[in-house]
Amino acid sequence: MRQFTVDDLERLLRASGGGDEHMDFSEDILDEEFSELGYDSLAILEMSALIKREFGVELADEEVAELQTPRQAIDLVNQRAAEVPIT
């Protein structure tokens, strides 16, 4: 699997939870909490469904509920992808 990047996260988060066009998804928001960025738990749940569909990485609902920041999400997806044997 290719790397799950901040650009991917932005794209999928916008698709799942919307977002204003002016928001800058640069590096410095990586450690801000999703709630601070205006995304609720349903937006994160929806994003995880999109990640599964596009990247084949399945996160458990409990794991998704624990995610607080973009960095945590990116790290978890890439870590989980590395564990999946390539078939």
């Binding site: 799942s16 939870g17 919307g18 977002g19 204003d20 066009e21 205006g38 995304y39 937006a43």
Partner: peptide
């Protein structure tokens, strides 16, 4: 209503 709320 804003784009976030619109998708929800």
């Amino acid at each position: 209503v804003g784009s976030r709320v619109a998708v929800q």
